[in-house]
Amino acid sequence: MTDAAWTRATARIADTTMHLSRAGSGRPLLVLHHDIGTPDRLAFYDALAARFDVLVPHHPGWGGSERPGWMRSVRDVAAMYQWLLAELGLKEVSLLGLGFGGWIAAEMASLAPAAFHRLVLVGAMGIKPPEGDILDQAIVSYLAYPQAGFHDPAAFTRIYGDVSTDQLEAWDIAREMCFRIAWKPYMYSQTLPHLLGGVRAPALVVWGDDDRIVPVSAGHAYAKALSNARFETIRACGHFVDMEQPEALARLVTEFVAAN
């Protein structure tokens, strides 16, 4: 495991101060975190930073990024990230979207079909699953929801330990943000599937084999809607693949994104 040197910076996007962590060098890789936010450091991020210029922003309204009160949709978030990339002068960026962040990545790719090098969607929300429903966090507790995203309860404990009140509060804020921009329909877009066909970037769609938050049928729908996509399953793994099977996911992503 590389002990990557992470820098923390802020960027002013759409009158909103956004938090950005960055480490490594190589091809730029924008990592878009889950609906529950992200821990500051993850072994998965470090593994990616060994090969890429990894950018991990906090979504507007999550973690260290300000809440834009006007924001109403996940597409708004996608537009803010395009703005951020323009601000940083980055081109040929690869997108790695984790869960809810996968939805944002897919929106970004659909809005700029030729702009990205690679697209990786992991347990991505954003499409109505043809079978099953996306787990509704509105009616489960702050602990039960993140726990539902792990195949092995020990993996949850490894990441979050005895969950602190600060963490619970952050999850409540994250949940509120989900409601503000993705309440209805819950965690998907009815138009996104029709807009994915033009995406030029090769895509990798990855799913945990025990994802109880986003049914795998959504993953197959993504792989079908994108014109150049490959589907991979990770075994003994829930929704939070990056936290439960970091090495396996990092291997897949590294190989896929590094390819010319």
């Binding site: 509105a138 507790s141 702050y142 009140t165 509060e169 999850w171 409540d172 949940r175 509120e176 409601f179």
Partner: peptide
């Protein structure tokens, strides 16, 4: 989430 006053958030999440 979002229904309650932000000032009560901390107490509430602990109760929840």
């Amino acid at each position: 989430a979002g229904y309650f006053s932000p000032s009560g958030r901390r107490n509430f999440v602990e109760f929840a």
